[in-house]
Design a protein around this nucleic acid. Structure first.
Lengths: 152, 152
DNA sequence: GTTTATGCAAAACCTTTGCATTTTG
DNA sequence: CAAAATGCAAAGGTTTTGCATAAAC
């Protein structure tokens, strides 16, 4: 679950570089919050990051963690798992299928692909547990948003 | 976006069958809520389902919609998009990678696969818009949960 | 007639925001 | 020192829960 030392070092230096380039201040809180996310492969939630960082900076507040994680996303330093900042959405299509997701507007379209249904499980993953199904998410910009984009 | 007539019919009959087998009551609200999700490919959220069903059953309440959608998930009649009922979680791994997700405990593990990175985009999807990246989610039961499962 | 589901209202929860104070460059 | 970030407290929004009433089997 831990990330290897060299990779952490890499992430930290990229982090400092990105902050500098963005002209964003390099605060104690930001350092610790990033380090906390960078050094784990656990994909922690905001509460967990808060709890862990609070051991080093007891005065930190939860909203700073939220604001900071959001900032890091905007700077392309981290990503959020799951469909980001959206409500839960429901699907009655219980056949195997995959999704195309528009990163601009969030629209999600179903498609079918025998090839995708039948992907073979990588060796490495067999050790993780039992794989029961797979789902491919293709991300991009939908036709409607491409038009809007062209007009700008 | 609409689902074809025959497919809707199929979903409705499966729905009735599942309710019967589960010994769960076939109420007016449940019928309309399921029909609403079954007949669209839009992946509506709870609010949207509520708004649409309310046109047919003005007295319906939002919490019934939530409770009912949750019930349908438990019965395997619908699925929720994104990481279901969880908080937003963060990842500092910005290299191309994919996820193994445990459907029991929600644990998410990263893995790398050149083969998955390079999947070709199906013909059908080209019309949806511009695909920029892809992400494969392998779902199953992690090693730890497999052990728990064996003990039960 | 019992059992189960609904509607209402209120709570719980996660996340965001306004503002005075503190910190950074 | 000016500009930006933090902490606090409060608000916003979604989702869940307890309980009396109503509906299904």
């Amino acid at each position: 679950m831990g990330v290897d030392r060299e990779e952490i070092r890499l992430r930290m230096s990229r982090f400092e570089e990105v902050l500098r380039r963005a002209g964003v201040k390099r605060t104690h809180q930001r350092m610790e919050i990033f380090r906390e996310v960078a050094r784990t492969g656990e994909h922690p939630d905001a509460q967990t990051v808060f709890r862990r960082v609070a051991r080093r900076i007891p005065s930190i507040s939860l909203d700073t963690v939220y604001r900071t994680l959001r900032l890091f996303q905007d700077l392309g330093l981290i990503t959020a798992l799951g469909t980001n900042h959206e409500r839960i959405r429901f699907d009655a299509n219980m056949n195997d299928h995959h999704h195309f997701v528009c990163t601009r507007c969030g629209k999600t379209l179903d498609f079918h692909s025998r090839e995708f249904d039948e992907l073979s499980v990588p060796e490495e993953v067999r050790d993780f547990g039992r794989v029961e199904r797979n789902h491919v998410e293709l991300r991009g910009v939908c036709a409607k948003c491409l038009i809007k984009e062209a007009k700008e």
